[in-house]
Amino acid sequence: MHRHLRRLAPLAGALILAGTAAFAADFTACQVTDTGGIDDNSFNQTAWKGVLDAEEKLGVGGRFLESQAETDYEANINSLLGGQCDVIITVGFLLGDATKAAAEANPEQKFSIVDYSYDPAIPNVLGQVYATDEAAFLAGYLAAGMTRTGVLGTFGGINIPPVTIFMDGFYRGVEHYNARKGTTVTVLGWNPETREGLFTNNFESLDDGRAFAQNLVDEGADIVLPVAGPVGLGSAALADELGVDRLKIIGVDADLYFTDPGKKHVYLTSVMKRMDATVLGVIEKAMDGTFAGGILEGNLANGGVDLAPFHDMEALVPDELKAELATIRQDIADGKLSVGG
């Protein structure tokens, strides 16, 4: 109690105590989203689902703060300091600097960040990182086997490692297919050697998602992988209009078949990054006292990343391709096949 009292102006103190008391759970997990918003059907929403799962399974309290601009990161993290949160989870690579600063200024506060790891590790920050290229490799192989035009497309939100790792894996999956089958399927929108490609430079604009996908279709692509959170919903809307024969979309982060039900028929599959699982894992660690700074990695072997089912397109995918994907999946999980360049 005294902790609260010290923070408050005497005038409002009593009233606010009554207000916050109603929210008191034994353990509170707080989350700061990136700019896409908590309901982006993809990146932030998947991470928030981890807290919702923890509310259900572990009985914790959950709170979140949406960042509307990059300028909000530090302010939002600050709003959650002061002992009200048992763990603060920041969602996204771009929050890396702000999280580091807050963690170093508040060594007693537990932090966890999605898509970032620190070297050297910070004792009170657990970084959640993902071998997304393992699942994206499968998506690339699948897309190469499914394309009719021989041209695939991808574009990203911002040129940062957790985005481009999708594009790397996708590109290499296509290369792997070409090497095995002697085909010449090409990928537009990303060059893993020069590290340059198509980027919308935001994680918000659905209009950009539509325009970028249209440009790729104009260049011959019939399957597009948008790696930009909710921006990809604009690409899905375009695929809905053009028809899935001309354009199929591969979702990212969540299984978009479920999170974007209005357009579910346009998704060939999704490259799932199970941030909900790792966020839940972090909350469990923070609750049972095993929390420590360092890295928590999600990969194909531990289910932290995966390729979503084909759902409505199940019948379109040849059985031979499915069998090859299953083999490749096993080889990657066993470490027999490297997805690196």
Binding site: R7, L8, A9, A12, L15, I16, G19, A22, A75, N78, S79, G82
Partner: peptide, 25 residues
């Protein structure tokens, strides 16, 4: 709604940190 307006007051004027954030913004 009542709690949110109290939070509005607390978050803008209710503590040194709140005042600091108000001035910063």
């Amino acid at each position: 709604i009542g709690r949110s307006y109290l939070a509005l007051l607390e978050g803008s004027l209710g503590s040194l940190r709140a005042l600091s954030e108000t001035l910063t913004a």
